[in-house]
């Protein structure tokens, strides 16, 4: 086995274990902390795929923002951060079925792909040295976000949505009787 494979298997095992712990822990804070571990594992997978930007963004947004917000919400909510939380409701069976369905269809689709079992060659681009390629890709990603031919409309729509959420938060927190 190559080093990459060993690291991948260890990471994958860690992700599966911590993901299982997320859905089975009765203590919600523990579940949230295991979720952090899961998200970190996914970031490691991105690093193994040499997608540094995605890995860093994964840590920055999912761990740095979303997970911390979740932990905050759990800790601030009365009586939720105790051990007697009911983790499953009557939808658990359906959710499990859906998960199995999605996973098996993914396996079938990926298995039918001819290059599923071959190693991808490292990303190259003519005229760009390999150590500057990552920088190049990030720059292209940034440009495509503001390019009219690419993703400027989704980008602007998301911006407006976030702005609306910001203003909404201020309106909610505003003290009217002042």
């Amino acid at each position: 086995m190559t080093a990459l494979q060993v690291i991948f298997l260890a990471t994958a095992a860690m992700i599966l274990f911590s993901a299982w712990m997320v859905v089975t822990r009765r203590n919600l804070v523990h579940a949230a902390l295991y979720l952090v571990l899961t998200l970190f594992g996914v970031a490691v997978l991105f690093v193994l795929l040499e997608a540094t930007f995605l890995a860093v963004v994964q840590v920055l947004i999912y761990i740095g923002a979303i997970a911390i917000l979740m932990i905050f919400a759990i800790m601030l909510t009365r009586r939720v951060a105790s051990d007697d939380t009911v983790v499953a409701n009557h939808n658990a069976g359906w959710a499990a079925m859906l998960a199995v369905l999605v996973f098996s269809s993914l396996v079938i689709i990926m298995g039918a792909w001819s290059q599923f079992t071959t190693f991808a060659s490292p990303l190259t681009r003519p005229g760009v040295p390999s150590n500057e390629l990552g920088q190049e890709i990030v720059a292209e990603l940034g440009q495509s976000l503001v390019d009219p031919d690419a993703y400027v409309i989704p980008f602007e729509v998301a911006s407006v949505l976030l702005l609306a959420a910001l203003i909404g938060a201020i309106v909610v927190a505003w003290q009217k009787d002042k």
């Binding site: 930007f53 860093v56 963004v57 840590v59 920055l60 761990i63 740095g64 800790m75 990030v138």
Partner: peptide, 19 residues
């Protein structure tokens, strides 16, 4: 190639450790 973003990202582990 995303060193500055990395510096910003790893700081979130400090926040998690405090919590």
């Amino acid at each position: 190639n995303v060193g500055v973003l990395y510096i910003a990202a790893v700081g979130s582990f400090g926040v998690i450790s405090i919590l």
